[in-house]
Design a protein around this nucleic acid. Structure first.
Length: 159
DNA sequence: GGTCAATTTCCTGTTT
DNA sequence: GAAACAGGAAATTGAC
């Protein structure tokens, strides 16, 4: 079932969605971050993903390696090529997004944290804690979340 | 070693 | 009935 995480059904982009490479491998593999090693390359990478260089640098080598869950989610949303359809914007301007593949997201986060016992239930509990801190806001729809006033770096015009 | 923040884990109950 | 949500409580983990 969770094969979808590592197999081609939702991994259309071969470069980031290699079915033979786990997400842990992917995230720890230097070859997948060469563009972040140098500023110019970082800039060109950021242009490709619509991320301005300054913010991109704050995310240098943190794209999908962010220490915090909400940053991980944000970076996933900002990187369609790594996203593989797990998350999608519902309303980009308002920061509303939807979890399309909850199990895949949990698996991805679990591999990121080297925790193969991660589930969407646990991940969503962590997301709910963000309501208290204003990083996320409640949306009364299933699998839909919204970035709050204390979340940063997700807005297109403020990147 | 202590403290703290950020989860993680487990749980019960509710809603869709 | 399954999946997801809500939130309390305690445990764990990593950074400082």
């Amino acid at each position: 079932m969770l094969d979808s995480v590592t197999h081609s059904t939702f991994l259309p982009n071969a470069s980031f969605c290699d079915p033979l490479m786990s997400w842990t491998d992917l995230f720890s593999n230097e070859e997948y971050y060469p563009v972040f090693e140098h500023q110019t390359d970082a800039d060109s990478s950021c242009l490709k993903t619509g991320i301005k260089s300054q913010d991109c640098h704050t995310h240098s080598r943190t794209s999908l390696q962010s220490s915090h869950l909400w940053e991980f989610v944000r970076d996933l949303l900002l990187s369609p090529e790594e996203n593989c359809g797990i998350l999608e914007w519902e309303d980009r301007e308002q920061g509303i997004f939807r979890v399309v593949k909850s199990e895949a997201l949990a698996k991805m986060w679990g591999q990121r944290k080297k925790n193969d016992r991660m589930t969407y239930e646990k991940l969503s509990r962590a997301l709910r804690y963000y309501y208290k801190t204003g990083i996320l806001e409640r949306v009364d729809r299933r699998l839909v979340y919204k970035f709050g006033k204390n979340a940063h770096g997700w807005q297109e015009d403020k990147l």
